[in-house]
């Protein structure tokens, strides 16, 4: 079943987050050979990115998204695209910093995040970046696209 793409289309609203979880649970169940820890990390990251779209995509409540995830031989790749307006450039850590820090393996370093430990917001995208090998954003005509990659095995 390697290479199969799981896809979800819907509105970028909080109620839909559970469907995204359901899709990832299905993908995990149909790939029992894949490291559950890697899939757990990808799901956690994907939901942080989705939260970010739900909160910031405009016009609020009317933005549609598509989520796709594909299990490949040596990695899991996910993409979340939405029909929202191009907002301010979303905050994103410099490319490669999350992977270079070794945070996915050792979990000791947080990339970015709030300066104040007791801050209640601002951890979502830094957490997503720390969980993945690659997190990237690009603006295409009419849509925002986030791509997420997580290596399987050997890491």
């Amino acid at each position: 079943m390697a290479g199969e793409t799981y896809r979800l289309d819907g509105l970028a609203v909080p109620d839909q987050l559970r469907r995204l979880h359901g899709l990832l649970a299905t993908a995990a169940a149909e790939h029992p050979q894949v490291d559950p820890g890697a899939l757990m990390a990808l799901e956690t990251a994907a939901l942080e990115v989705a939260n970010n779209v739900v909160e910031h995509a405009r016009p609020l409540g009317q933005v549609r998204w598509r989520f796709e995830v594909r299990v490949e031989e040596d990695r899991v790749v996910a993409e979340l695209s939405d029909s929202g307006e191009a907002g301010d450039t979303p905050w994103l850590p410099p490319a490669g910093r999350a992977a270079a820090s070794g945070s996915t393996a050792s979990g000791t370093l947080v990339v970015g995040g709030p300066a104040d430990d007791l801050e209640e917001t601002g951890r979502g995208l830094p957490l997503a970046a720390a969980l993945l090998d690659d997190l990237a954003y690009r603006r295409e005509p009419g849509r925002n696209v986030w791509t997420m990659r997580k290596a399987l095995g050997g890491r």
């Binding site: 820890g37 757990m40 990390a41 956690t44 945070s103 979990g107 000791t108 947080v110 995040g113 430990d117 951890r123 830094p126 957490l127 720390a130 969980l131």
Partner: peptide, 14 residues
Amino acid sequence: EQVTMVLRLTNLDR
């Protein structure tokens, strides 16, 4: 497991 991972990566386990 997942909660522990997230607490550790955000340093909130401190």
